[in-house]
Write a protein that binds this DNA or RNA. Structure first.
Lengths: 174, 174
DNA sequence: TATTGTTATACTCTATAACTATA
DNA sequence: TATAGTTATAGAGTATAACAATA
């Protein structure tokens, strides 16, 4: 019964997310106040820095792709399907570390927008082969251009060389 | 009305979180399957690597501090209060980038456990001066030892030098 | 029996609005 | 009027459990 309301709710939520991302930028440094408040042990914790960085990076991604209304997880799903057509939902979920239950809803919304289609598997009637639609392929190409722009923002923020070092250091987590 | 159930619910949730953290370790690499599934453009995105890294790092933190039942955000709140006694809730929220509405609940649970106390401000009757209790100070010392152990896990995972480079690169986000 | 996709539920985190009591 | 703390609500994300269809 809640299913019918999804579209309008999601649209409203997305608009809110975009508003947030637009306004809540440029304060990565806590320029508001409290620069004199010490962080003590937190300074030495990689997890704290990584969390703050991730908040910034996701906000910039959402803002940069706001015109096409695509969030980081949706982008990752479409990218993997685009690069590996015919994957099952289980395979995508495992590869990206997403719960298969959650992927169901992600794919619902991408299918509603005609970016992805679930095609019955020829070999296993339980599973779906995931493909991008023609519209999805065109759209993904545009998303990739915008995502590359976002990536340039990251390079501007932390420095080009630092960004590359970071990618190298964290390569084992991809 | 939901307030009364919180304690038992939270306890159950925490137990579940600990179980998760205990079992869901060691698969940071997607060793399950799908190593032959290409990530395409995702490989070049800092945000994807950072997200995966953060998932790993938070799970290890939760696991390492499971015996004392402290999560990353609770730790950060106690650390900042410990280093800056008398801060208001607004000041802590701003410094850590937490919503003030959320900090209310975080402090509720830390106060219930007698780690933190809200003392009426002498100068502004709207605000609270936050302090660690005696018990909180002792507890925090132990949390810091465990957090340092967690930090050693990070160093083992990505390498000691890489961890230090990472901290340097992301220093502007703390 | 085990697995795929699905539905439902619960908890965490983030964001927002509105209320109160102060300032 | 504006601010500090609080309460309530909604959405995203994560984790589980349970079910039907299929293997």
């Amino acid at each position: 019964m809640a299913t019918r309301q999804k579209t309008s709710r999601k649209a409203a939520a997305t608009a809110a997310a975009i508003r947030r991302a637009r306004t809540a930028n440029g304060r990565a440094h806590n320029s508001d106040a409290g620069d004199d408040i010490g962080l003590d042990a937190l300074i030495g914790h990689a997890g704290y820095a990584v969390r703050r960085f991730q908040l910034w990076i996701f906000q910039d991604f959402i803002k940069t792709l706001a015109t096409v209304d695509i969030r980081p997880t949706q982008y990752s799903v479409m990218t993997v399907i685009g690069a590996n057509p015919g994957l099952s939902q289980m395979a995508v979920a495992k590869r990206l570390g997403i719960e298969r239950a959650r992927l169901v809803h992600l794919l619902d919304s991408l299918e509603e927008r005609d970016f992805v289609s679930r095609i019955p598997s020829a070999t296993d009637r339980r599973s779906h082969a995931l493909h991008l639609t023609a519209r999805g392929k065109t759209a993904l190409a545009q998303f990739k251009r915008l995502a590359a722009e976002h990536e340039r923002h990251v390079a501007e923020k932390i420095g080009k060389d630092n960004r590359e070092q970071l990618l190298q250091i964290l390569a084992c987590f991809t």
